[in-house]
Design a protein around this nucleic acid. Structure first.
Ligand code: FES
Ligand code: FES
Lengths: 153, 153
DNA sequence: TGAACTGCGACAAAAATAGTCCTATACTGG
DNA sequence: CCAGTATAGGACTATTTTTGTCGCAGTTCA
Protein backbone atom coordinates (compact mmCIF):
# COMPACT_ATOMS: atom_id res chain seq x y z
CA UNK A 1 0.00 0.00 0.00
CA UNK A 2 0.94 3.61 -0.40
CA UNK A 3 3.35 2.39 -2.98
CA UNK A 4 5.17 4.47 -5.51
CA UNK A 5 4.70 3.20 -9.03
CA UNK A 6 7.66 1.62 -10.73
CA UNK A 7 7.63 4.42 -13.23
CA UNK A 8 8.21 6.89 -10.45
CA UNK A 9 10.94 4.67 -9.11
CA UNK A 10 12.57 4.54 -12.49
CA UNK A 11 12.32 8.27 -12.85
CA UNK A 12 13.93 8.89 -9.49
CA UNK A 13 16.68 6.43 -10.25
CA UNK A 14 17.37 8.09 -13.55
CA UNK A 15 17.48 11.56 -12.07
CA UNK A 16 19.71 10.38 -9.31
CA UNK A 17 21.98 8.85 -11.91
CA UNK A 18 22.11 12.08 -13.85
CA UNK A 19 22.83 13.98 -10.67
CA UNK A 20 25.75 11.72 -9.98
CA UNK A 21 27.21 12.10 -13.45
CA UNK A 22 27.39 15.83 -14.06
CA UNK A 23 30.42 15.19 -16.21
CA UNK A 24 28.54 13.46 -18.99
CA UNK A 25 26.92 16.07 -21.14
CA UNK A 26 23.97 13.90 -21.90
CA UNK A 27 23.03 10.33 -21.24
CA UNK A 28 20.65 8.24 -23.32
CA UNK A 29 17.64 6.46 -21.92
CA UNK A 30 19.12 3.20 -23.07
CA UNK A 31 22.32 3.81 -21.17
CA UNK A 32 20.50 4.33 -17.92
CA UNK A 33 18.11 1.49 -18.56
CA UNK A 34 21.02 -0.82 -19.19
CA UNK A 35 22.91 0.08 -16.08
CA UNK A 36 19.87 -0.57 -13.94
CA UNK A 37 18.37 -3.39 -15.96
CA UNK A 38 15.02 -1.77 -16.52
CA UNK A 39 12.94 -1.78 -19.74
CA UNK A 40 14.49 0.86 -22.01
CA UNK A 41 11.31 1.85 -23.76
CA UNK A 42 9.51 2.32 -20.52
CA UNK A 43 12.24 4.43 -19.06
CA UNK A 44 12.30 6.40 -22.28
CA UNK A 45 8.70 7.34 -21.75
CA UNK A 46 9.31 8.32 -18.21
CA UNK A 47 12.16 10.55 -19.24
CA UNK A 48 10.03 12.03 -21.96
CA UNK A 49 7.49 12.97 -19.37
CA UNK A 50 10.12 14.53 -17.20
CA UNK A 51 11.35 16.46 -20.19
CA UNK A 52 7.89 17.68 -20.97
CA UNK A 53 7.47 19.21 -17.54
CA UNK A 54 10.88 20.80 -17.82
CA UNK A 55 12.93 18.80 -15.34
CA UNK A 56 15.14 17.48 -18.10
CA UNK A 57 16.51 18.78 -21.33
CA UNK A 58 16.64 16.33 -24.18
CA UNK A 59 18.85 16.10 -27.17
CA UNK A 60 18.07 13.83 -30.09
CA UNK A 61 20.46 12.29 -32.52
CA UNK A 62 23.75 10.53 -32.02
CA UNK A 63 25.32 10.94 -28.62
CA UNK A 64 22.05 12.51 -27.65
CA UNK A 65 20.22 11.92 -24.43
CA UNK A 66 19.09 13.79 -21.38
CA UNK A 67 20.54 16.16 -18.84
CA UNK A 68 19.15 17.86 -15.77
CA UNK A 69 17.71 21.22 -16.58
CA UNK A 70 18.53 22.56 -13.15
CA UNK A 71 20.64 21.72 -10.17
CA UNK A 72 19.89 18.51 -8.33
CA UNK A 73 19.35 20.49 -5.16
CA UNK A 74 16.43 22.32 -6.69
CA UNK A 75 14.55 19.27 -7.89
CA UNK A 76 12.33 17.73 -5.27
CA UNK A 77 11.13 14.16 -5.13
CA UNK A 78 7.66 15.61 -5.11
CA UNK A 79 8.08 17.23 -8.49
CA UNK A 80 9.34 14.04 -10.00
CA UNK A 81 6.60 11.90 -8.61
CA UNK A 82 3.99 14.43 -9.49
CA UNK A 83 5.22 14.62 -13.05
CA UNK A 84 5.17 10.87 -13.51
CA UNK A 85 2.31 9.59 -11.45
CA UNK A 86 0.00 12.53 -11.92
CA UNK A 87 -1.44 15.03 -9.53
CA UNK A 88 -1.72 12.77 -6.56
CA UNK A 89 -2.73 11.53 -3.37
CA UNK A 90 -3.88 9.65 -0.45
CA UNK A 91 -7.64 9.70 -0.61
CA UNK A 92 -9.40 7.59 -3.19
CA UNK A 93 -10.97 10.72 -4.52
CA UNK A 94 -8.96 13.50 -6.00
CA UNK A 95 -10.17 16.50 -4.09
CA UNK A 96 -9.87 18.75 -7.07
CA UNK A 97 -11.65 17.46 -10.09
CA UNK A 98 -13.87 14.43 -10.08
CA UNK A 99 -15.83 13.72 -6.96
CA UNK A 100 -15.80 10.18 -5.74
CA UNK A 101 -19.02 8.27 -5.31
CA UNK A 102 -19.04 8.52 -1.55
CA UNK A 103 -18.33 12.19 -1.52
CA UNK A 104 -21.41 13.34 0.36
CA UNK A 105 -21.16 10.81 3.15
CA UNK A 106 -17.40 10.60 3.42
CA UNK A 107 -16.30 12.02 6.73
CA UNK A 108 -12.70 11.31 6.28
CA UNK A 109 -11.77 13.39 3.35
CA UNK A 110 -10.86 16.55 5.14
CA UNK A 111 -8.69 15.01 7.84
CA UNK A 112 -6.87 12.93 5.28
CA UNK A 113 -6.29 15.94 3.10
CA UNK A 114 -4.17 17.30 5.92
CA UNK A 115 -2.24 14.07 6.21
CA UNK A 116 -1.84 14.33 2.52
CA UNK A 117 -0.37 17.78 2.77
CA UNK A 118 2.05 16.58 5.38
CA UNK A 119 3.27 13.81 3.15
CA UNK A 120 3.55 16.16 0.23
CA UNK A 121 5.63 18.33 2.51
CA UNK A 122 7.99 15.48 3.22
CA UNK A 123 8.38 14.76 -0.43
CA UNK A 124 8.89 18.40 -1.27
CA UNK A 125 11.60 18.73 1.31
CA UNK A 126 13.74 16.07 -0.29
CA UNK A 127 15.76 16.82 -3.38
CA UNK A 128 17.40 14.58 -5.88
CA UNK A 129 20.65 15.79 -4.46
CA UNK A 130 19.64 14.55 -1.04
CA UNK A 131 19.08 11.13 -2.49
CA UNK A 132 22.23 11.03 -4.51
CA UNK A 133 25.14 9.30 -2.94
CA UNK A 134 28.17 11.40 -3.62
CA UNK A 135 30.07 8.76 -1.82
CA UNK A 136 31.77 10.86 0.76
CA UNK A 137 33.67 7.63 0.85
CA UNK A 138 35.08 5.98 3.94
CA UNK A 139 33.12 4.32 6.68
CA UNK A 140 29.55 5.43 6.80
CA UNK A 141 28.80 4.31 10.31
CA UNK A 142 25.26 5.49 10.63
CA UNK A 143 23.42 6.54 7.56
CA UNK A 144 19.92 5.91 8.68
CA UNK A 145 18.86 9.09 10.37
CA UNK A 146 15.51 10.20 9.09
CA UNK A 147 15.66 13.04 6.63
CA UNK A 148 12.84 14.81 8.34
CA UNK A 149 11.82 15.46 11.90
CA UNK A 150 8.23 15.61 12.90
CA UNK A 151 6.61 17.74 15.52
CA UNK A 152 2.98 18.00 16.37
CA UNK A 153 1.50 21.32 15.44
CA UNK B 1 -0.48 7.43 -6.99
CA UNK B 2 0.47 7.01 -3.39
CA UNK B 3 -3.16 6.30 -2.90
CA UNK B 4 -4.78 4.68 0.07
CA UNK B 5 -6.89 1.71 -0.92
CA UNK B 6 -10.62 2.01 -0.55
CA UNK B 7 -10.51 -0.69 2.05
CA UNK B 8 -8.29 1.47 4.18
CA UNK B 9 -10.62 4.38 3.57
CA UNK B 10 -13.56 2.30 4.63
CA UNK B 11 -11.74 1.13 7.70
CA UNK B 12 -10.87 4.64 8.75
CA UNK B 13 -14.40 5.81 8.16
CA UNK B 14 -15.76 2.98 10.24
CA UNK B 15 -13.38 3.59 13.10
CA UNK B 16 -14.13 7.26 12.99
CA UNK B 17 -17.81 6.42 13.12
CA UNK B 18 -17.31 4.18 16.12
CA UNK B 19 -15.26 6.86 17.82
CA UNK B 20 -18.08 9.30 17.35
CA UNK B 21 -20.69 6.95 18.73
CA UNK B 22 -19.31 5.75 22.05
CA UNK B 23 -22.86 5.46 23.29
CA UNK B 24 -23.79 2.52 21.10
CA UNK B 25 -22.48 -0.62 22.68
CA UNK B 26 -21.81 -2.24 19.37
CA UNK B 27 -22.56 -1.40 15.78
CA UNK B 28 -22.94 -3.89 12.97
CA UNK B 29 -20.98 -3.74 9.75
CA UNK B 30 -24.22 -3.37 7.88
CA UNK B 31 -25.22 -0.33 9.89
CA UNK B 32 -22.02 1.48 9.09
CA UNK B 33 -22.05 0.36 5.48
CA UNK B 34 -25.56 1.66 5.11
CA UNK B 35 -24.88 5.06 6.57
CA UNK B 36 -21.95 5.56 4.23
CA UNK B 37 -23.30 3.68 1.26
CA UNK B 38 -20.42 1.27 0.93
CA UNK B 39 -20.60 -2.47 0.14
CA UNK B 40 -21.57 -4.21 3.39
CA UNK B 41 -19.74 -7.43 2.74
CA UNK B 42 -16.57 -5.62 1.92
CA UNK B 43 -16.74 -3.48 5.00
CA UNK B 44 -17.43 -6.61 6.99
CA UNK B 45 -14.17 -8.07 5.87
CA UNK B 46 -12.30 -4.93 6.69
CA UNK B 47 -13.76 -4.90 10.16
CA UNK B 48 -12.92 -8.53 10.57
CA UNK B 49 -9.33 -7.73 9.78
CA UNK B 50 -9.32 -4.91 12.28
CA UNK B 51 -10.78 -7.26 14.83
CA UNK B 52 -8.12 -9.82 14.15
CA UNK B 53 -5.33 -7.39 14.91
CA UNK B 54 -7.09 -6.30 18.04
CA UNK B 55 -8.26 -2.82 17.19
CA UNK B 56 -11.88 -3.85 17.47
CA UNK B 57 -13.86 -6.23 19.59
CA UNK B 58 -16.60 -8.14 17.84
CA UNK B 59 -19.79 -9.64 19.04
CA UNK B 60 -21.71 -12.12 16.92
CA UNK B 61 -25.40 -12.80 17.03
CA UNK B 62 -28.35 -10.51 17.11
CA UNK B 63 -27.60 -6.91 18.02
CA UNK B 64 -24.02 -7.90 17.64
CA UNK B 65 -21.39 -5.81 15.96
CA UNK B 66 -18.15 -4.07 16.70
CA UNK B 67 -16.73 -1.67 19.23
CA UNK B 68 -13.36 -0.03 19.65
CA UNK B 69 -11.11 -2.10 21.84
CA UNK B 70 -9.29 0.99 23.08
CA UNK B 71 -9.68 4.73 23.19
CA UNK B 72 -9.77 6.57 19.90
CA UNK B 73 -6.81 8.63 21.02
CA UNK B 74 -4.64 5.56 21.19
CA UNK B 75 -5.40 4.22 17.73
CA UNK B 76 -3.24 5.70 15.02
CA UNK B 77 -4.07 5.95 11.36
CA UNK B 78 -0.89 4.02 10.79
CA UNK B 79 -2.14 1.00 12.69
CA UNK B 80 -5.36 0.95 10.78
CA UNK B 81 -3.75 1.26 7.40
CA UNK B 82 -1.11 -1.25 8.29
CA UNK B 83 -3.71 -3.74 9.41
CA UNK B 84 -5.75 -3.41 6.27
CA UNK B 85 -3.29 -2.77 3.50
CA UNK B 86 -0.49 -4.88 4.84
CA UNK B 87 2.99 -4.05 5.99
CA UNK B 88 3.63 -1.23 3.61
CA UNK B 89 5.37 1.23 1.71
CA UNK B 90 6.74 3.54 -0.78
CA UNK B 91 9.31 1.53 -2.65
CA UNK B 92 8.18 -1.11 -5.09
CA UNK B 93 10.09 -3.63 -3.11
CA UNK B 94 9.31 -4.45 0.44
CA UNK B 95 12.62 -4.04 2.14
CA UNK B 96 11.97 -6.88 4.48
CA UNK B 97 10.96 -10.05 2.76
CA UNK B 98 11.06 -10.49 -0.97
CA UNK B 99 13.71 -8.66 -2.88
CA UNK B 100 12.59 -6.92 -5.99
CA UNK B 101 14.15 -7.76 -9.30
CA UNK B 102 16.22 -4.63 -9.45
CA UNK B 103 17.49 -4.98 -5.95
CA UNK B 104 21.20 -5.11 -6.72
CA UNK B 105 21.25 -2.12 -9.00
CA UNK B 106 18.63 -0.01 -7.29
CA UNK B 107 20.28 3.04 -5.81
CA UNK B 108 17.17 4.59 -4.52
CA UNK B 109 16.00 2.15 -1.99
CA UNK B 110 17.85 3.48 0.99
CA UNK B 111 16.97 7.15 0.54
CA UNK B 112 13.36 6.28 -0.03
CA UNK B 113 13.29 4.11 3.05
CA UNK B 114 13.92 7.27 5.01
CA UNK B 115 11.14 9.11 3.23
CA UNK B 116 9.08 6.11 4.03
CA UNK B 117 9.86 6.38 7.70
CA UNK B 118 8.91 10.02 7.68
CA UNK B 119 5.56 9.26 6.16
CA UNK B 120 5.00 6.45 8.62
CA UNK B 121 5.76 8.99 11.30
CA UNK B 122 3.08 11.30 10.02
CA UNK B 123 0.57 8.51 9.98
CA UNK B 124 1.56 7.34 13.41
CA UNK B 125 1.13 10.79 14.85
CA UNK B 126 -2.50 10.97 13.87
CA UNK B 127 -5.13 9.16 15.85
CA UNK B 128 -8.67 8.25 15.03
CA UNK B 129 -9.65 10.78 17.61
CA UNK B 130 -7.80 13.47 15.70
CA UNK B 131 -9.82 12.64 12.65
CA UNK B 132 -13.13 12.45 14.41
CA UNK B 133 -15.22 15.53 14.29
CA UNK B 134 -16.66 15.98 17.71
CA UNK B 135 -18.34 18.99 16.33
CA UNK B 136 -17.12 21.58 18.77
CA UNK B 137 -20.04 23.26 17.12
CA UNK B 138 -20.24 26.90 16.14
CA UNK B 139 -18.20 28.64 13.49
CA UNK B 140 -15.06 26.77 12.66
CA UNK B 141 -13.24 29.61 10.99
CA UNK B 142 -10.03 27.92 10.00
CA UNK B 143 -9.86 24.20 10.19
CA UNK B 144 -7.19 23.59 7.66
CA UNK B 145 -3.97 23.89 9.55
CA UNK B 146 -1.76 20.94 8.84
CA UNK B 147 -1.76 18.36 11.59
CA UNK B 148 1.97 18.10 11.45
CA UNK B 149 4.85 20.49 11.12
CA UNK B 150 7.97 19.58 9.29
CA UNK B 151 11.49 20.58 10.02
CA UNK B 152 14.62 19.49 8.27
CA UNK B 153 16.79 17.32 10.46
C1' DT C 1 -35.78 -22.61 15.93
C1' DG C 2 -34.72 -18.75 13.23
C1' DA C 3 -33.30 -14.12 12.40
C1' DA C 4 -29.31 -11.16 12.64
C1' DC C 5 -24.85 -11.22 13.28
C1' DT C 6 -19.52 -12.34 12.62
C1' DG C 7 -15.71 -15.21 10.25
C1' DC C 8 -13.64 -17.03 6.15
C1' DG C 9 -12.24 -18.80 1.77
C1' DA C 10 -12.85 -18.87 -3.03
C1' DC C 11 -14.20 -16.42 -6.87
C1' DA C 12 -15.21 -12.91 -10.43
C1' DA C 13 -15.14 -8.22 -12.14
C1' DA C 14 -12.89 -4.02 -12.79
C1' DA C 15 -9.24 -0.93 -12.76
C1' DA C 16 -4.57 0.46 -12.51
C1' DT C 17 0.21 -0.62 -13.85
C1' DA C 18 3.71 -2.35 -16.48
C1' DG C 19 5.55 -3.20 -20.61
C1' DT C 20 5.67 -3.71 -25.94
C1' DC C 21 5.34 -2.22 -30.70
C1' DC C 22 5.32 0.75 -34.35
C1' DT C 23 5.93 5.00 -36.63
C1' DA C 24 7.55 9.69 -36.98
C1' DT C 25 10.89 13.06 -36.30
C1' DA C 26 15.49 15.14 -35.04
C1' DC C 27 20.36 15.39 -34.93
C1' DT C 28 25.24 13.80 -35.90
C1' DG C 29 29.05 12.25 -38.26
C1' DG C 30 30.96 10.97 -42.24
C1' DC D 1 22.71 13.72 -48.09
C1' DC D 2 22.74 9.24 -46.11
C1' DA D 3 22.96 5.93 -42.37
C1' DG D 4 22.73 5.38 -37.69
C1' DT D 5 21.33 6.72 -33.24
C1' DA D 6 18.28 9.18 -30.43
C1' DT D 7 13.98 11.28 -28.74
C1' DA D 8 8.54 11.72 -29.15
C1' DG D 9 4.51 9.59 -28.68
C1' DG D 10 0.26 6.89 -29.79
C1' DA D 11 -1.95 2.35 -29.58
C1' DC D 12 -2.01 -1.81 -27.77
C1' DT D 13 -1.47 -6.00 -24.76
C1' DA D 14 -0.22 -8.27 -20.56
C1' DT D 15 0.04 -8.49 -15.70
C1' DT D 16 -1.05 -7.32 -11.19
C1' DT D 17 -3.78 -5.15 -7.72
C1' DT D 18 -7.90 -3.74 -6.08
C1' DT D 19 -12.66 -4.17 -5.48
C1' DG D 20 -16.56 -6.55 -4.86
C1' DT D 21 -19.57 -10.98 -4.56
C1' DC D 22 -21.08 -15.59 -3.02
C1' DG D 23 -21.67 -19.28 -0.14
C1' DC D 24 -21.26 -21.53 4.00
C1' DA D 25 -20.15 -22.23 8.88
C1' DG D 26 -20.36 -20.63 13.63
C1' DT D 27 -22.67 -17.47 17.42
C1' DT D 28 -25.90 -15.22 19.99
C1' DC D 29 -30.34 -14.11 21.42
C1' DA D 30 -35.25 -13.89 21.72
S1 FES E 1 -13.00 8.98 -0.24
FE1 FES E 1 -13.91 10.33 -1.75
S2 FES E 1 -14.95 11.80 -0.52
FE2 FES E 1 -14.00 10.47 0.93
S1 FES F 1 12.86 -0.68 -6.05
FE1 FES F 1 13.38 -2.64 -5.24
S2 FES F 1 15.44 -2.42 -4.61
FE2 FES F 1 14.89 -0.44 -5.41
Amino acid sequence: MLRLTKKADYGLMALKYLAEHPDSVSVSAKDIADTYGIPPQLLAKVLQRLTKVGLLRSHAGMNGGYELSRGAQTISAFEVIHAIDGPLFITSCTKGSKSCDLEPSCTIKEPLARVNDSIAGVLKSISIHDMADFDVSAGHGMESQPLVMLTRA
